[in-house]
Design a protein around this nucleic acid. Structure first.
Lengths: 233, 233
DNA sequence: GTGATGTCAAGAGCGGTGCTCTCGATTCAG
DNA sequence: CTGAATCGAGAGCACCGCTCTTGACATCAC
């Protein structure tokens, strides 16, 4: 779609791309709160009101950044999974976890925009959800394939999921098209929350003065969580 | 310290208390970003510049709110632990987890202030750390007592912590005065991050359209994480 | 080619923010 | 009782998101 449309449409698309790029850079220095349309306009040599021709409001610009962010982390996760040996399910899990952490460390403010405190007054439109699940799709695919290959060996006896969760499990099964027993799904969710909880703790400062060997600790924790699901390291 | 000092000092202390209370209320409606000194002053029938007599900057007011928040969640955790049967370590763990979730659900914006995205441009002073560890002190005490009582039975064989983490483990051992093997400490950290990761996911919207039975799911996940450490349900 | 149409940058303006400074009034300590 | 410290009030600075209007420009149909 590079040379599509009239000249006006092309320059418009290019300007939108440039605006989001500058906004992303400002996100990295001032945070989501400090994102300022006026500042973006100033950096582009534009007058502030002109920005509103391209993004009707600050929230629309935020939405564009959020969708871009989800797609970026989703792409990183997909790439990491594709590069690992298909049969090494534990290795794929760890590779995906590392990809999430890596992306978060290199794009801390974008990560905070996606997984941190919700931006006050901002309501995420429906457009964001389809991009938001790209990483979980990869995660569930790994576990589903491991389960199908009989390589899933949960450590020790664990309490079964309560029956009240059956509805949620069924919905997740169809939404992510995974053929897994409920107990495995809840463990996968636990590992999923543990992954992002660990990344958030590291990024948001909870590990300060506590854990210094961040990479080694992360690998170890993710291995523990993988074992919880039944993935061999 | 209620009737201490001169009349001026007493009215000053009362005003500071009132400012933080109003600020906390505004935090609950507008978020940390929307916290406005002018709005606080307006609600107090004061002129905006007068606030600066009591809090030299917006960051100082934020610091006060953060310290209050850490103390509030710490108190809730301590109370929950004290009310559980001392010998039921799994029950104490679950009670503490529930207390954290409960407090987070009733004070979502304060929780976001503590465990969400860092406020841009805000640098937490050293005063906050002593209040910030009250919950982890309780968590480690439960696990330490369970370990001392021989009630810790980690499920299945897990990979040992890599030697590079020995330094971090030693520092944590002395800082939190817990007498635990390194493997147990790393598992406790994993459960700790899993606890807050789950609460953050629920509060920050990642569970929307995914998990509806929040309380049941939370209990189950926390039980799984407790089992990971070796706590029986 | 020319006129209608749509798009654009620019500017002024509104109400809001954190923060600083000054100026009287009040209150406290010596 | 007096000098010093503290206080509320107000004006002001630079910034913010956002709206509205105006005039210039490119595009397209006829």
């Amino acid at each position: 779609m590079s040379a599509g449309g009239t000249a006006r449409e092309r320059v418009r698309a290019e300007l939108i791309r440039e605006i989001t790029e500058i906004a992303r850079r400002q996100l990295a220095t001032a945070g989501a709160t400090g994102l300022s349309l006026r500042a973006v306009a100033r950096e582009m040599g534009m007058v502030s009101s002109a920005i509103y021709r391209y993004f009707p409001s600050r929230d629309d610009l935020l939405t564009a950044l959020i969708i871009d962010g989800y797609n970026a982390v989703g792409e990183a996760v997909e790439r990491a999974d594709a590069q690992a040996a298909a049969g090494d399910f534990g290795g794929r899990w760890l590779a995906v976890c590392r990809a999430v952490r890596e992306w978060a460390l290199t794009h801390p403010h974008e990560y905070a925009l996606l997984y941190g405190s919700p931006v006050p007054g901002y309501k995420a439109p429906e457009d964001t959800v389809s991009a938001a699940v790209r990483d979980t799709v990869v995660l569930t695919r790994i576990i589903t394939e491991a389960h199908a290959a009989g390589a899933l060996d949960p450590a020790g006896p664990c309490p079964p999921a309560p029956p009240s969760l059956a509805g949620d499990m069924a919905r997740a099964r169809t939404a992510l098209s995974m053929d897994l027993p409920g107990d495995v799904i809840t463990r996968a969710f636990t590992a999923w929350a543990g992954l992002y909880g660990t990344v958030s703790f590291e990024l948001f400062g909870q590990f300060n003065n506590v854990i210094e060997e961040r990479a080694a600790y992360f690998d170890h924790t993710m291995t523990l969580l993988g074992r919880l699901v039944g993935l061999e390291p």
